[in-house]
Amino acid sequence: MNASKVLRRAAVVAGATVLLVATPTAAFAADPSYRTLGTATNTDWMRGLADSRSLASLSIPGTHETMAVHGGAWTQTQENFGDSGGTLTAQLAAGIRMIDIRARVNSGNTFTIHHGATYQNANFDDVLTKLSDFLGAHPGETVLVRLKQECTGEIGSCTDAAGQAGFTDIFDSYVARRPALFWTASVDKTNAAVPALGAVRGKVVLAVMNGARGGRYANYGLAQFSDWNDGSSTYVQDNYDVPNIGAIATKRDQVRRFLDATSAGDAGKIYVNFAGGSSLFAQPQQVAGGAFGVQGVDPFLLSYLNQGSVVRAGVLMLDFPGGALINKVISLN
């Protein structure tokens, strides 16, 4: 859940007093599914797949709020492997191949990376540099990107710098400076079809670009995501509001049902399944790892995938993923 939504809810409920009452215990300890990203090494897992494989046919581990490592327990969604893109580098080495980037418009017509009001000690140039370095060293891979304008100007969110160019214009300027990095069809505003792997090796594929309140910037990214808004849509499960610890069970079921739908669904479409969620009464780490005796989504996912009924996982957008969970998703390919 966006940090601004969490903070607005906190203000309505009564602020600091409620926070003291609601502060929960720590999530379950790290295990093979959770907070053990560094145990996975999958730098070249796409290299051995056929060029003819559609991206839609793949099972891809991804991260939700990829760069969110600062701001406290209600804001952090990933293990911290360093600022200025260090965390992204660690994720790519582990095998993560779809990322979720949230950008604020900064002075000089630039993007800085935020989760709500919290600057994540990284800029969009850091993101692109780390992607370029990784894909240059591992040209058999591709990385999908969901880019979202983060700032709404509301309480708990950030505010874009005044007097700057529009969000899409700034993005276009980044692309113009690194034209070889992006798969052109995904950034030239032509509503690209889902590509085969061979067409995008060594490239970044823009899957979708969303505005600050969830609407899609028309024609950027893949045509199949034309209705990707804030939350779930035709090919996206993103029920991010987990109102309390007990509701983690509901979130697990939503993820499971979408996995089943993906496995049996349209083979020509990419399905994106967000495993994370939060609210004032449930931190991202608790939803992912579990708390108060309630199983988290990450250990549930590893157990469910190990049962063998899922043959295509689509893209799983994870909070605090563990090495064994990443390895399992990749093994489905």
Rank of each mutant, 00 (worst) to 15 (best):
V310M: 05
A93R: 11
T142M: 13
D241M: 09
H70R: 15
A22Y: 06
R177H: 13
D227S: 05
I326A: 03
M1W: 08
Y220K: 08
F320W: 13
T39A: 10
D125E: 14
F167Q: 06
G71P: 07
G322H: 03
D260A: 07
D319P: 00
F320S: 08
A180W: 13
D31W: 06
I96V: 15
D172V: 06
F28V: 13
N123A: 02
D83F: 12
A11R: 14
G38T: 12
P179I: 07
K203P: 11
G62T: 12
G153L: 00
A176P: 09
T262S: 08
N106E: 15
V236R: 03
H114A: 05
G72N: 06
L55T: 06
S33D: 13
G95Q: 07
Q295W: 07
I270S: 03
S4K: 05
F81K: 10
T23G: 00
D241Y: 14
R201Q: 01
W45N: 04
A3E: 09
L144C: 11
W228Q: 08
G62L: 12
Q76R: 15
G231K: 01
T110W: 00
A324V: 06
G95M: 10
N306L: 00
T118P: 03
R177V: 15
S59E: 13
R257W: 10
A10G: 07
A22Q: 09
T190E: 03
V6S: 11
L302T: 05
D298F: 04
F292T: 12
V208F: 07
L222A: 12
W45F: 13
T190Q: 12
Q283V: 14
Q149A: 13
M209H: 04
A22W: 00
L301S: 08
Q91P: 05
R257I: 11
N239L: 15
A275W: 02
N244W: 00
A56P: 02
A73K: 11
A103I: 07
T262L: 02
T41A: 04
R9Q: 14
Y174P: 10
L88N: 08
Q283R: 15
P321G: 08
V205T: 08
Y240M: 02
D230M: 07
N106Y: 10
L49G: 04
C151Q: 05
G198H: 04
S279V: 10
G140L: 11
P243K: 12
N229S: 11
D298P: 03
F225K: 11
R102I: 06
A90N: 05
Q283D: 14
Q76V: 15
F225E: 04
I60K: 01
S132Q: 14
Q224I: 02
L135V: 04
N106T: 11
G323R: 02
G48H: 08
G323V: 10
R216C: 08
K203C: 10
N306I: 02
P284N: 03
Y304Q: 02
A10I: 12
D31P: 09
A275D: 07
R257P: 00
N191G: 14
T43D: 03
